[in-house]
């Protein structure tokens, strides 16, 4: 048994699930202007977009500059919801707030960073908040390349070569999945599971697994073949 992903000079699959802190640390987002504005009360930045477009990642990127601030996620099932006392509050999945909760949550004495699938402008207006909606749509090849680079680099085990993703593959991923970063991560996770040495992941790796190139391990299948149960 080897250390995990040792053969790739990595410590783990770079496209596996991250903790909230790791997501904040690795977020490839320009947050300076948000961070500055949030120091004043009465400001709302609303991140709006479909699932997998980076709402939570943007919020985590900003939250990194306010590590003491509460980061709340509203549950789909109606639950009691209270806001701890802090000048900046992060609320993810805000579309699930009930009307009553919305009225009680937003006040002009605080600033907010909100992630939502539904715009909540009237609520902010009623609370006297100055708001800006940041619609997360579209993904450039440069941005995706830097997201991928930061994820792989953060998983590095030691000095030396590590797998890289070729620009052509990045363009193909955008062609296939559009701006759905989560789906792209899922695809890259599967590709990195199959690698057996640091190499350049090009477009040939995006073929279905059966016709994938040779730098792959076939761990699960091999294990199955090795492990036949014997009747007693």
């Amino acid at each position: 048994m080897k250390l995990p992903f040792e053969e790739l000079n990595l410590r783990r699959n770079p496209f596996g699930q991250l903790t909230a802190k790791e997501r904040a640390r690795l977020a490839v987002v320009d947050v300076d202007r948000f961070v500055q504005a949030l120091h004043q009360p009465g400001q709302v930045f609303e991140f709006f977009g479909h699932s997998g477009r980076g709402k939570t990642t943007h919020m985590r990127g900003i939250w990194r500059h306010f590590p003491q601030a509460p980061f709340l996620r509203v549950a789909e099932e109606r639950e009691r919801f209270s806001i701890p006392d802090h000048p900046v509050v992060f609320i993810d999945e805000a579309q699930f707030l009930t009307r009553r909760q919305r009225r009680k949550t937003f006040t002009a004495q605080r600033s907010y960073v909100v992630g939502t699938h539904k715009k909540l402008h009237s609520i902010y207006q009623r609370a006297g908040l100055h708001f800006e909606t940041v619609e997360l749509r579209g993904l450039s090849a440069e941005k995706l390349a830097s997201i991928i680079e930061s994820r792989i680099e953060a998983s590095r085990r030691g000095p030396g070569p590590i797998p890289r993703v070729h620009d052509d593959a990045i363009h193909l991923l955008i062609e296939e999945f559009g701006d759905n970063i989560r789906a792209i991560e899922g695809r890259l996770y599967e590709i990195f599971q199959r690698l057996d040495r640091p190499c350049l992941v090009d477009e040939s790796f995006l073929q279905p697994a059966t016709s994938a190139p040779t730098h792959t391990k076939n761990g699960a299948t091999a294990r199955k073949e090795q492990s036949q149960v014997g009747d007693v």
Binding site: Q17, S51, G52, T56, R73, V74, E76, E93, F96, R223
Partner: peptide, 17 residues
């Protein structure tokens, strides 16, 4: 993986005799 609306279950069969 994920929480709330992003919750997804991933399964993988590692042994199936």
């Amino acid at each position: 993986s994920g929480v709330g609306t992003n919750k997804t279950t991933h399964t993988h069969i590692v042994y199936d005799d």
